[in-house]
Every structure is written in C-alpha cells, then in structure tokens.
Amino acid sequence: MTPAVSAADLAPTAYAWQIRATGLKVRAGRKRMAVDGLDLSLGTGVHGLLGPNGAGKTTLIRALATVLRPAGGTLELLGEPVGGGGEYRALRRRIGYLPQEFGYYKRFTVREFVEYMAWLKEVPKRDIPAAVQRAVERVGLADRADTRMKTLSGGMVRRVGIAQALVNDPAVLLLDEPTVGLDPAQRLRFRELLQELGTDTCVVVSTHLVEDVGAACTHVVLLAEGRLVFRGTPKELAAAGGPEHVGDSPLERGYSALLQGPGRDGGAW
C-alpha cells in the first residue's frame, strides 16, 4: 500500500523559522538601502507585509526570493543561510515567487506557461502535468487552461502568476501584490486560498490593502523606511489605533497610528 505520508514529510525540520533575518540590509539599485537593519522571524502561516510606498516591501521579498543578495546582516531560509554567491538550487526548488511586475509570454497558453515555469523550477518531469493541472485548478482557471495568455483579462493573468508560484508545492510562498487587478469576488476566493495555504506553508504577501490583511493573514508585518515598525496579529494592529487616528476601519486606524510614531512625518502623502 502506498503510504499517504512519507518519512520525509514526518521528519522534524532542522530550523525553527522558515524565514529568519537578523540585521538584514538589502540594496535597491546602487546606493539606496531599501531594507536597513531588519530583524524578522516568520514561521508557518500567512504574513501580511504592509507599509507605505518605498518602505522596502518589494526589495525584502526579492531578497527572500534570493534574486537580490543581502548587503549586510544574515538571512536564513528554511535553515539555509543565504549570503554570498552560489545558486541555491535546492533551496529555490522549495520557494514559490510571484513578482510585482509579472511578465509572461503572450503566445503561450496558460498550461504551457505554467509547464514552462514547472520545468524552470526543476519539478520532476513525470510530475509536471499533474502539478500543472492542480495549480491551474487551485486558481480557478481549469476551463481557460488551453487559451493563449494574450486573450486573458488582467485578473486572470494575475491568477496564472499565482498558479506558477504554487506549481512546485513551495514551503515558502512569496507573493508581491497578488491582489492587484482581481475583482472583489476573486479577492474573496484568493483569501480562502491563502488561508488554506497558510496551514502548512510560510506565506508572505505584500499588499497595500489593509482589509486584505484583516481577512486572510494570521500575522502582520509593518515596514517603514526599511525597518520593522510592528509585528503582531491583525487584532493587535487594530488595537494600536484609537478614534483620533485617520482611517475608515480599526485596521486602517491602527496602521496610521503606528506609522505616525515619533520621528516619522510621512509628508502630504
């Protein structure tokens, strides 16, 4: 009989946190230090990454995806230190990444594109068709799987992006602004998917929509100017704000309260 759970699945992990950063510094471009001395430990669950524009969310996610190398401090992913050169092939096989600017090939069908990504992610050849089908079904695109990507709407393209991030069953899933372009119904469905994934995966979602965080995230990480401002549950974020702060919901009031802390004047925007 085929065992449902393999020994590898049951083996204890050699790390306490899927993502662990101490004093992490990452450059964006040549000079600007977009992430500047960040201490962060993230485990299983859905972590909403919040912050104003230019807070370093995208740079942090790129560093977690190992496409930018840290300029200082230490970063450990799944127990493996990420620092200097190296290709990190084994580590990358266990990471799913949706970049903010999700580029795709217009002439490919959805299935061809996700297959191509599965090949790039070194999914074993015999597992590719099933893994692709599963990923496409999870984002609700099974009926459009064989249409060319240039005929898809913006929200559908975004869902293809989510499907390619899921195709290798990642242990760390990094989604940079995944809800951009999704209509309200799709956003609800996406939140359900996040909650489902968060039960056994470390999901990091960057977003600028505070209500996404309240609905789907187990933890909130608030960044400003490359530093950690707040880390806690959505409830704790809501509790940080009072009626005197700007915002339409408790979460928004908490967000603006924390960003208005001493020495932080955000300007007119």
């Binding site: 995806a65 496409v67 092939r89 084994a90 990358r92 970049p99 580029g103 795709y104 790039l120």
Partner: peptide, 14 residues
C-alpha cells in the same frame, strides 16, 4: 524577456 524576474528566481537560473 518579459519574465526575466521569474526566470532569475528559478532553480534552473544560473
């Protein structure tokens, strides 16, 4: 290459 960032993040990159 529109998908350059995805390509760079894949294990087969390098």
């Amino acid at each position: 290459d529109p998908a350059y960032e995805l390509t760079a993040s894949a294990p087969r990159a390098g």
